[in-house]
């Protein structure tokens, strides 16, 4: 079963330099991500960027991931 740490590392690999914290119970996860890439992006685009970093895990091992995405300084 996938663990919060696995998700954290995947997001950090996909968004170098981002500040990431993940909690969850093995199916439903919550992640807070602060990354430069989010600057000037809509909430939808920000979530898509995070989903990209998680590849095919999203919707499979990760049933649900609620996201709080911020650009630095927000």
């Amino acid at each position: 079963m996938i663990q919060p740490d696995d998700i954290k590392q995947m997001i950090e690999r996909g968004l170098p330099g981002a500040h990431v914290s993940v909690t969850g119970d093995g199916h439903h996860f919550e992640a807070e991500v602060t990354a430069d890439e989010f600057t000037g992006k809509s909430m939808l685009q920000r979530h898509q960027i995070v989903y990209q970093a998680l590849g095919d895990k999203m919707g499979n091992e990760i049933h649900a991931l609620s996201l709080r995405t911020q650009a630095p300084g927000e």
């Binding site: 909430m43 939808l44 979530h47 898509q48 989903y51 919707g59 991931l65 996201l67």
Partner: peptide
């Protein structure tokens, strides 16, 4: 939609987002 989960809401054919959004 480059969006891997459901639900997905569309307004006039454009993805608004999932439950979170």
């Amino acid at each position: 939609s480059n969006w891997p989960t459901f639900p997905q809401l569309y307004l006039n054919g454009e993805l608004v987002g999932g439950c979170d959004i």
